[in-house]
């Protein structure tokens, strides 16, 4: 991530000042997910049609009669963003083919949270990836059902205390490991999968641009720090995202990787992990190293492909 760090001061020149996700929305202070959405919208520009799942980003951006969206945007339900985007993409394709809408390049973006992606929306997503629609799917992963009040999802990390995986006297929070959603996307043999984090805005924007250029489905998994749900001060959102990457908890692949360094600091600044014993932290550390090594092997295996 040296590149990102060294170009930080120039970021304003590298990313457009135009906003397609307007300010004035109702997200919490320090919401890194809203920041990620804003960066994605900047990257895609105006020639886009967005299908959003139910969730934080939907409710904060569309209370009738207001909207934060300066691009065409549709929300239908929770679990079907990939299917709605499939329909929009297919519908537009046939309308252009029949000459009823002038031909031009339009990007189709489906977006959902981690619950809307790795739990309730995984079937619709799998179907859309398998059918090969030309669209980008972005999972904004804040690691729990934050919109409904911080309930655990399959994307909640091991050990995290949530309202449905509380740090109890017997069971110390989430006892399952985070579902590896990017790998599930990879298993569909789609052209492009990436992970990103708004703490690395240039990296994120570049990945979104690349996904838009790809023909066929693209999947980007964006770690989106949620100060409310992570029990973390709002001003630490960006730092927590940085740490997640730098420590290898959330490796960025495809473009660059954070310097591998797992520190307790990532866990310690978050109230949701405050209860963890040294032993549990060691377990997490071990698993992170394991996952990271697996990833490195895969990168080596496919080098030069």
């Amino acid at each position: 991530m040296e590149i990102v760090e060294s170009t930080n001061v120039y970021a304003y020149k590298l990313i457009t000042k135009k906003d397609y996700f307007a300010p004035g929305h109702r997200a919490c202070q320090g919401c890194a997910e809203a920041l990620a959405v804003r960066l994605v919208a900047k990257a895609l520009g105006r020639n886009v049609i967005v299908a959003s799942a139910t969730g934080c980003m939907e409710i904060i951006s569309s209370p009738m009669p207001f909207t934060s969206w300066r691009v065409p945007w549709i929300h239908v339900a929770f679990e079907n963003a990939a299917a709605v985007a499939s329909g929009a993409e297919a519908g537009m394709k046939v309308l252009m083919r029949k000459g009823r809408v002038p031909k031009r390049k339009i990007t189709f973006l489906a977006m959902a949270g981690d619950g809307g992606t790795s739990d309730i929306g995984v079937q619709a997503l799998s179907g859309a990836l398998e059918r090969g629609h030309d669209f980008i799917y972005i999972c904004y992963d804040n690691e729990a059902y934050m919109n409904t009040g911080i309930q655990r999802s399959s994307s909640t990390p091991y050990g995290a205390s949530t309202t449905t995986s509380p740090a109890g006297k017997v069971i110390p929070g989430q006892i399952t490991w985070k579902k590896n959603m990017p790998e599930i996307a990879v298993a569909h043999n789609i052209p492009y999968v990436a992970t990103a984090c708004p703490s690395y805005p240039i990296d994120l924007v570049e990945k979104v641009n690349k996904a838009a250029r790809v023909k066929g489905p693209a999947y980007i998994h964006i770690l989106s720090v949620c100060p409310t749900g992570w029990r973390l001060a709002p001003e630490l959102s960006i730092r927590a995202g940085r740490l997640a990457v730098e420590t290898g908890v959330f490796p960025l692949y495809e473009v660059e990787y954070g310097r591998y360094r797992f520190t307790e600091e990532y866990l310690k600044i978050q109230g949701r992990f405050r209860h963890l014993s040294e032993e549990m932290i060691d377990t997490i550390q071990k698993r992170v190293v394991e996952e990271y090594e697996k990833l490195e092997k895969k990168i080596k295996m496919t080098e030069g492909d």
Binding site: I74, V84, S86, A88, G91, V94, Q123, G127
Partner: peptide, 24 residues
């Protein structure tokens, strides 16, 4: 026409919604 063999009826109606929303 685009024939979209969806993975469930839930998606059948969702795809129809998306298609109808773009004017198809």
């Amino acid at each position: 026409a685009e024939f979209i063999p969806v993975e469930s009826e839930h998606s059948a109606m969702s795809v129809s919604a998306g298609a109808s929303a773009v004017g198809a």
